[in-house]
């Protein structure tokens, strides 16, 4: 762990002003915001992140959950995961988000982890976290140890020849299905980023994970108004019953009318290098009858582009089944 300077920011402009001096807002950023610290402090102890300055944003407010003018929800960046999961409006209108949050980490971690921190959660790829081994995400150009290595838990969608690391967040999967918007404030003012544009594919620059630039502070996330008549569910599959990252997970938001899918939003986790929207399957399902054959077909279609590694070929089948079963749960075709 490196020595660092700690600054408690009192205002948003102050935090942004300090962070704007950073050379990057991505991997190896010399200046980092810290909120819950559940990812960052771990990575600092492992020497994966070596910031020289931490800007504590815990005292900036940004911790409210409010209705927006259009009937949606505005979630402050510093709302803790447990508070968000147990918010009555979230439990009522965005069940998939509550379920996703509660399926992640442990109660202790959820009590400190924040919305923006979860949004920026780093991969659990074992090579990223081990400085003795090559990793393009940690050290660009050093190589990817995961390709040809222990990659059972890693991605089958969105990978590149440089990186196959999975985005580990459960919350992100729900936010993708809910078509959330990420709101930033930076040196040039505020920006609103559609959720699916917020995270980047690894490509040749796996060290760049989001659109964030130096000084950009995530201030809040907004959710569109809940659609009446929709049901939403989150299904997470993993080895043990609790406290483990997903091997495959699915967030589904569906509206059924007259025995047909009228509205479908699907996203998956544990299998992609970023939270993965399943748009082809959404289109295939919309207007189609709610039956087993349709669901299976759509789930198979969703994984059509999967590119497994040496150890994670099973994830294609597992993810297909995961998405199909999440759809069964959301449509009442299954109860467990």
């Amino acid at each position: 762990m490196e020595r660092f300077q700690y600054t408690r920011a009192r205002t948003v402009p102050e935090a942004i002003g300090i962070a704007a001096q950073s050379t990057t807002a991505q991997q190896s950023a010399p200046i980092r915001f810290v909120a819950g610290g559940t990812t960052l402090v771990d990575l600092m102890k492992l020497d994966v992140e070596r910031p020289t300055r931490l800007v504590d944003i815990n005292h900036l407010g940004l911790n409210a959950i409010e209705r927006t003018a259009d009937g949606g929800l505005k979630v402050g960046a510093l709302v803790r995961n447990s508070a968000l999961a147990q918010d009555p409006a979230v439990m009522r209108d965005y069940r998939v988000l509550s379920e996703a949050l509660l399926s992640g980490a442990s109660a202790q971690l959820r009590n400190v982890a924040t919305t923006s921190g979860n949004l920026l959660q780093r991969t659990r790829c074992m090579y990223f976290r081990n400085t003795a081994m090559a990793c393009n995400k940690r050290e660009p150009g050093s190589g990817c140890s995961a390709i040809g290595g222990e990659n059972r838990t890693l991605a089958i969608l969105g990978t590149s020849s440089q990186c196959i690391a999975t985005n580990p967040s459960d919350m992100n999967v729900a936010l993708a299905a809910l078509e959330a918007t990420v709101h930033l404030q930076g040196t040039k003012g505020t920006r609103a980023i559609a959720f699916q544009d917020f995270h980047l594919l690894p490509g040749d620059t796996p060290n760049r994970e989001t659109v964030l630039e130096p000084g950009d502070l995530v201030t809040h996330v907004t959710l569109p108004p809940p659609r009446s008549g929709t049901t939403s569910r989150y299904l997470k599959l993993r080895d043990r019953a609790s406290y483990e990252f997903a091997l495959a997970s699915a967030a589904v938001v569906v509206e059924v009318a007259g025995g047909r899918f009228r509205y479908v939003r699907l996203a998956m986790g544990g299998i992609g290098t970023k939270p993965w929207r399943m748009t082809a399957a959404e289109q295939a399902l919309t207007g189609a009858p709610v039956d087993e054959a349709t669901i299976r077909q759509a789930a198979t279609l969703a994984l059509r582009d999967a590119r497994p590694q040496s150890q994670n070929g099973f994830k294609v089948e597992l993810a297909t089944r995961c998405l199909a079963h999440a759809l069964r749960l959301a449509t009442g075709m299954a109860s467990v």
């Binding site: 074992m126 222990e150 043990r240 019953a241 609790s242």
Partner: peptide
Amino acid sequence: INSNLADYIVSTNAD
């Protein structure tokens, strides 16, 4: 390589 308690999976209370 999985030399930590997140990647070396042991039973939790829920198991």
